[in-house]
Design a protein around this nucleic acid. Structure first.
Lengths: 348, 348
DNA sequence: AGCAGACGTGGAAACGTTTACAAGGCCTCG
DNA sequence: CGAGGCCTTGTAAACGTTTCCACGTCTGCT
């Protein structure tokens, strides 16, 4: 088998024109006899239609692109898995692009003009006006996972991570915590800002339970560790000012990775989790389930966001005229060991 | 901007033929004047060459495919990142396929005949003769990450995970452990078998330090937990036959995920890690670094394997005639807390 | 029996590129 | 001064498909 068979070969072997062969193979109008002969000819030759030629002619590649800032983050992996499993059903292939910074993302959006994909799902960490502009100008449908300015006219799936922070805080209050701090990610990111607002919004109803907030340099374990150290040092970890009335006894982290960092810092400072310090994370990654002590975490539905984004994209591909849709995936709290009440029963 | 500009538009605007336009843009023979005019025309029109048309004509898509059994596993994510960063340099795009089972993989290999990719990197969990057959028959170069039968004539990058197990065992012996068990993954997988051999190979030099081995149902935390429970229950965890001379005091896991499962099982059984039980994992994922206690793990160079595989693929694409190469990435031990000697100094 | 319509078929164009080939112009060298 | 060669250019074919259009044939209805 030196050369791949083309539809011309099939047609010749079946004794019909290429047009008929194409129709027969694609289920268009063709007599039963023709279909039969073309089918067997194709079978004999092991004919497989060329994706490139077909793409050129039909104007659709059957390829989609998924672009995220950091594919190393388990959240995005989960999204990707979800997207993958949705889009493969109608036969799309999935391309992955990890975009380091905002400029990369713009370049990527521009590169869509090469026509290698029929659409894109984009989950940017930093949303700028310029980015929105480019998304709108993209030659193929783009759905964005993340929070966009109102009325951008872009298909979007987002979560209410501000409310997610609120849920986490409420849970801590309900389980008897007295002073709650916040370890956020970088404030120049969209999720970072949203979560900051979420934390600040709890200030009024918390009163003096509302503790300090600190922004880590990154959404990573290491950054969380560093941030937590300053937080704990400044605000009454044992060995500091002592566990007085103003000592932190709970921390909300904007991210599971940050939360793990917080737990490390606590451990190194001799602060016990959950007895001395409750920790709650966000994203509800597998890490949260697996860590010891297991981490209470606010799920932002990463898998579902992926699924919904994929569905949105497919819907738009099917009907380019449909109105831009925004889907909101609600946050949900998953309680685990890291927030077990200090004097409560031992519920695993 | 309703319609994307084609090279015909550019040629017309520049007042030259499409052939000249193409040559000018691609740096083939063309006068300075022509190049200048074509360049500006292209610039004015925002011309971007169509990837599909180019692919059809040139016979190369500039796309590569990366296929793994379970993209949920952090090891593969790391590989993917490495592959991505290598192949984007010469301008390749990367497609991801998560193949559930062996049949999926075969289908995927077959689908390469559609011509949507110039090559593939494949990391299968189960290598069968049929798979090797299909890899050989693939219409584009395929590089396999994993252990293939000798003389398959396929570009391969592998690691010596049997030796990796040996290294882990030696480390446990050196740090004073008396009886070492093994929690493996499924034995019908290629890494599972290799690691089993690795463990068995230590039997002679260990004597009665060589403990029992058990195979988990899967390379996951949950499976590791289940497997470890039977192992610990059967072989002298506290509460069982008591920590007699035959009690396990160390476990090698074939995987970081399994190792985490083991640590959970130990925790639930009241066995302390590392004091009562040393645990060492494999793959040296971020999980190992981040877990508490941090997990000693044998790195199998997942990132490097990805890099090398990508390089191998690029080399083959550049020279299809070159001889099939096998690259071996050596395992390396990363010592952390989970194997700290019981009576040793407290070295963090 | 005649005609409209349906249906199957083949030829050819088209998708947007690259490239083989031939031809023209100019320069250089004999 | 003429021939050969190089450089540039344009025409046209090609990559492998799908699809428009026109043409025939057959069916069924009046």
């Amino acid at each position: 088998m030196k050369q791949r068979a083309t539809i011309t070969d099939v047609a010749r072997r079946a004794g019909v024109s290429v047009a008929s062969a194409s129709r027969a193979l694609n289920g268009l109008s063709a007599s039963a006899a023709t279909v039969e002969r073309v089918r067997t000819a194709a079978g004999d030759l092991g004919y497989i239609p060329d994706a490139t030629a077909r793409a050129l002619k039909m104007g659709r590649t059957l390829q989609l692109s998924f672009a995220v800032d950091d594919i190393g983050n388990p959240v995005y992996v989960e999204m990707m898995k979800a997207v993958q499993s949705v889009v493969t059903v109608p036969g799309y292939r999935l391309m992955i692009s990890s975009t380091g910074d905002a400029d990369d993302t713009i370049d990527l959006l521009r590169s869509l003009s090469k026509g290698y994909a029929d659409g894109m799902i984009l989950s940017p960490l930093r949303v700028t006006d310029r980015l929105v502009e480019e998304v709108r100008a993209a030659p193929v449908p783009v759905v964005v996972i993340g929070r966009l300015p109102e009325g951008s006219g872009v298909d979007t799936v987002m979560t209410d991570s501000a409310r997610g922070v609120g849920i986490a805080v409420d849970h801590l209050v309900e389980t008897g915590r007295r002073r709650i701090g916040f370890v956020n990610g970088p404030l120049d990111t969209t999720p970072g800002r949203a979560r900051q607002h979420g934390f600040e919004a709890t200030a009024e109803r918390l009163g003096d339970r509302h503790g300090p907030a600190v922004a880590a340099a990154d959404f990573t374990v290491a950054a969380g560790y560093d941030a937590a150290r300053t937080l704990l040092a400044g605000h009454g970890a044992p060995g500091g000012t002592g566990p007085g009335p103003h000592a932190l006894d709970a921390v909300v982290a904007a991210n599971d990775l940050l939360a793990i960092g917080v737990m490390h810092a606590a451990h190194d400072a001799g602060v016990r989790v959950p007895d001395d310090l409750a920790v709650v994370g966000m994203d509800d990654t597998e890490l949260a389930r697996v860590f010891q002590p297991s981490l209470t975490s606010v799920s932002l539905g990463s898998g579902e966001r992926g699924t919904r984004a994929a569905e949105l994209l497919l819907a738009r591909l099917a009907d380019p005229q449909r109105e831009a849709t925004t889907v909101v995936v609600p946050p949900a709290l998953h309680v685990r060991h890291s927030t077990r009440p200090p004097h409560g029963r031992d519920t695993p």
